[in-house]
């Protein structure tokens, strides 16, 4: 019998505030907005970005105010070269977010797409609805619809601790992570 005396349901006072605190600590940029304000905030984050990638499930409404070109990964999947082109950003949703650890979990759902989409572009914008935020890791893993889908846990932009054990942001994954939290 495995003793499981640890806390399964962590309930901090303010989930959103804690998530924001953790993300900022990882050097991600965080914005908060209402459902109606999302299109405007995304256009603001993407100002100066000429081309973005959006998985098939990202609603048109999110990108309504965005002026640049939108590449969709269907009907034909985008080539790696398209994703790697300079200045390309990717906009996705997420499956669940963990306040305590500042983690966004992607499970390849329709608004997140296949894993390469959130990996190759140098700038990732992730939209989190406040209802998707849970306290701790156990709650988050239990929320996943199907754990055998490809899962990626993202906690801040790409980083390394390999030089003198200090964390430095920006290696192979997206070097810029913007998180937009939509309050309901």
């Amino acid at each position: 019998m495995v003793p499981r005396e640890y806390e399964v349901a962590r309930a901090p006072d303010d989930l959103v505030e804690m998530l924001v605190d953790r993300l900022v600590d990882y050097k991600a940029t965080v914005r908060r907005c209402s459902v109606e304000g999302l299109g405007g905030v995304l256009a603001e984050v993407l100002a100066g970005t000429e081309r973005i990638v959006a998985p098939s499930g990202v609603p048109e409404g999110w990108l309504s105010a965005y002026q640049g070109e939108v590449l969709r990964d269907e009907p034909r999947p985008l080539a790696v070269a398209d994703l790697d082109a300079p200045g390309v950003a990717v906009v996705t949703g997420c499956a669940v977010a963990v306040a305590e650890t500042g983690t966004l979990i992607l499970d390849a759902g329709p608004d997140q797409g296949r894993r390469a989409l959130t990996l190759v572009p140098d700038h990732h914008i992730c939209v989190v609805h406040s209802g998707q935020i849970v306290g701790g890791v156990p709650q988050a893993l239990r929320r996943l619809a199907d754990p055998t889908r490809p899962l990626t846990l993202v906690s801040g932009p790409s980083a390394t601790s390999d030089i003198e054990l200090n964390r430095v942001e920006g290696v192979h994954g997206p070097r810029r992570l913007d998180v937009v939290i939509v309050d309901r």
């Binding site: 953790r22 600590d25 990882y26 999947p77 963990v98 305590e100 650890t101 500042g102 983690t103 390849a108 296949r114 894993r115 390469a116 754990p147 055998t148 889908r149 490809p150 899962l151 990626t152 846990l153 993202v154 906690s155 801040g156 932009p157 790409s158 980083a159 601790s161 054990l165 964390r167 994954g173």
Partner: peptide
């Protein structure tokens, strides 16, 4: 693991995969 190894609340990336997923990876 992350708190014990790099002293972070969570490491930047964790990947989980199960066999082959058509069209992904």
């Amino acid at each position: 693991l992350p708190r014990s190894s790099t002293g972070e609340r969570m490491n930047p990336y964790t990947s989980l995969w199960t066999g082959v997923t058509p069209g992904d990876g």
